[in-house]
Amino acid sequence: MASLITCPHCGVRPKEEFTIRGDASLVRPAPTASDEAWHDYVYVRANPRGRTLEHWQHVAGCRRFLVVERDTFTHEVHSVTDGAAFATENGR
């Protein structure tokens, strides 16, 4: 796993300071969406080999939620953005 994460608020930090809080690419379905859509959103997860988008929380630092794009195969970290900035950029 990627061992160094560059937090946009705190700088380069070891991964021990963070907690992974799950897939960040999922989009919450509308309240009236079908049971299948909600089941997929809540329970079904991919286990990708390659680039993934995840929520990481910097629990021992600024305690912000971050969106980390990393590669599960090469352990390379492509980008780290603040969760709030990511949400506004993607119109969520």
Binding site: C10, G11, R13, P14, V59, A60, G61, C62
Partner: peptide
């Protein structure tokens, strides 16, 4: 200044 982890203590 910054928050950091010292051992297991924030």
């Amino acid at each position: 200044s910054a928050n950091a982890l010292c051992g297991h203590i924030a």
